[in-house]
Design a protein around this nucleic acid. Structure first.
Lengths: 264, 264
DNA sequence: AAATGACGTTTCATTATTTGAAACGAAATA
DNA sequence: TATTTCGTTTCAAATAATGAAACGTCATTT
């Protein structure tokens, strides 16, 4: 990465295409906006000329990444992004391999069930089986979780790659609630406990009043490929969870792991 | 590409940027592929040089639209697309406005509940409340439905813009199952019936053994803004649905519409 | 009703940017 | 060790993107 040799000392742009860069910024800008944006507004936000942005929007629209309101002429993000996200989700093995098991986990605990996977430095929710309770408080597929502030995340830190764990632990730990672990030492201690017992919780750490019990799913090589969890109000999943709840989650995770072992 | 006339007589490309066009094709290609693709493979598929594709992939990767497997060096679609899709989904008013009502609809019918909206010529699933039954057969948020072969679609054809209905009716009607309506006359007759009674079904028309009862949601201007439906096996939702099921769905839709009237 | 302003869209000459062929180095294969 | 295959970089040629300004249309204002 870092070249300390005399040659190529100041090289701000290693590679890539600036045209594409601008266009992608436009897409991201439109997704962030809650209302359709005018051409001039987008151009100003990205400090480019109207003509340039216009041409890019035309191409983006042709691909469905952006759509133009036929009445006002304003631009907004296109639903193609939703479709692509869904197509991507289905590529993960765990999603299909675990569905049946997750349904029974939901039925035996009554709580919502979520599945997560981490790629690079992002932890993403892949699947959600809604619970039986009236009030739903769970994260939808496509949502990104924090590694240090979620039961899923702790599973990945405890059983995933050491590099990632080191990176997360050395970085700043943002507090989502007063209960979120923000101390490096406390986090590492918690991870040791997670490793020892094989499951993780994060009571009130992501949202106050909500708790989660997560367990790891391994493939045939004993590599962590996913995490599953039950999510519910602390009323149903206390900070120190019911032994039976723990047993159900850990058992389901183990059965899914066994299923993945047979494959391939 | 090939211009054989002296002066731009035939101008196939009205506007846009070819660089961006190529890059977007690369993203779409990677989403379609089920496994990570090699650089050479992508370059050949898009008939561009390796260098060009490489630079685009670098930029796409920097934005998270694409990721590179650190071990094999191959490229695949990035999870940013999933996150963008989820961010987009939440922009639709109906999703938040209807959640509570949809939960009670699920609880009173026991079936899965879905919400759809159409933008331009695409009908997309926005929300899914899973049912109480053990076997789940429903479409996830981000999935696209066919207008002529789904209960949701018939609602949009019956109560939505005339232009869209005309466009769909004049085009080819693909058969998803033997029961799918493929005749233009039969479709228009069905739409008349839907308009008259205020709800739609599509027994076995999208998947054999599955039925849906859908009803329209209007905003304060009486403009169609969404459709809601219960989805379940024909065992639970017969081809001629239980009057009570119909009453529940239509009632929920009406209450959501009333809620949208108060807003704004 | 005429005039203004705001908007998306198009034109056009300038030139900055992308482009492909070929060379590179590393890694897997033989 | 020789060879092939892969992602990556280099470099000169020119394609293709760029911004300023003009256009046509609509809605609002005077």
């Amino acid at each position: 990465m870092s070249t300390d040799l005399p040659k190529a000392v100041a090289k701000p742009a290693p590679a890539g295409t600036s045209t594409l860069d601008l266009a992608l910024h436009a897409v991201e800008y439109l997704v962030q906006q809650s209302r359709p944006a005018s051409l001039a507004q987008i151009a100003e936000a990205l400090s480019a000329s109207k003509a340039t942005i216009y041409r890019h929007l035309v191409t983006l629209q042709r691909h469905g990444f952006v759509r133009q309101d036929t009445e006002t002429g304003r631009y907004e993000a296109g639903i193609k992004l939703m479709a692509l996200g869904e197509a991507l989700r289905q590529r993960f093995d765990i999603v299909s391999a675990a569905r049946e098991e997750l349904m029974t986990l939901r039925d035996r605990t009554g709580q919502a069930v979520t599945v997560c996977a981490a790629v690079d430095n992002e932890l993403i929710v892949l699947e959600l089986i809604q619970g039986r309770t009236l009030i739903e408080f769970s994260t939808r597929p496509g949502t990104r979780l924090a590694f240090h502030a979620s039961a899923h995340g702790k599973i990945w830190l405890a059983f995933g790659s050491r590099e990632r764990t080191a990176a997360i632990a050395s970085g700043p730990l943002e507090a989502w609630t007063p209960a979120t672990i923000v101390s490096r030492e406390a986090l590492l201690a918690d991870l040791d406990a997670v490793r020892a017992r094989g499951w993780a919780t994060a009571p009130n750490e992501v949202i106050t009043g909500v708790n989660t019990v997560a367990a790891p799913v391994f493939d045939h090589r004993k590599v962590l490929v996913g995490s599953i969890a039950i999510v519910g109000a602390t009323q149903f999943i206390p900070p120190v969870p019911d032994p039976e709840q723990i047993r159900e989650v850990v058992g389901s995770a183990a059965r899914i792991s066994r299923g993945l072992t047979w494959k391939d």
